[in-house]
């Protein structure tokens, strides 16, 4: 799974190489940040309005 591979921690040796290629890494970082910003924007669209009231009104009595 590509997601999985990206998340995997690189071995220590690879990490040294990564710091040597700083520009590429930060470019990739920018891209990731851009993706995350887009995702947050998308989530903003579906979030319930008036967080405070909504959270306050969520009460669950009785269970198990």
């Amino acid at each position: 799974m590509p997601e999985q591979q990206r998340r995997q921690r690189p071995a220590p040796k690879e990490r040294v190489e990564e710091t040597e290629e700083l520009p590429a890494t930060s470019e990739r970082g920018e891209k990731l940040k851009g993706e995350l910003d887009d995702l947050l924007d998308e989530i903003d669209e579906v979030l319930e309005i008036n967080a405070e009231d909504f959270v306050k009104s969520y009460v669950q009595k009785g269970g198990e």
Binding site: V46, L47, K56, Y58
Partner: peptide
């Protein structure tokens, strides 16, 4: 901030279009 509590709750929303 209540927005974080809302995000917490809505992470678990079971509606496919609303579930975070």
């Amino acid at each position: 901030d209540p927005k974080l509590a809302l995000l917490d709750l809505q992470y678990h929303d079971v509606r496919p279009d609303r579930s975070l």
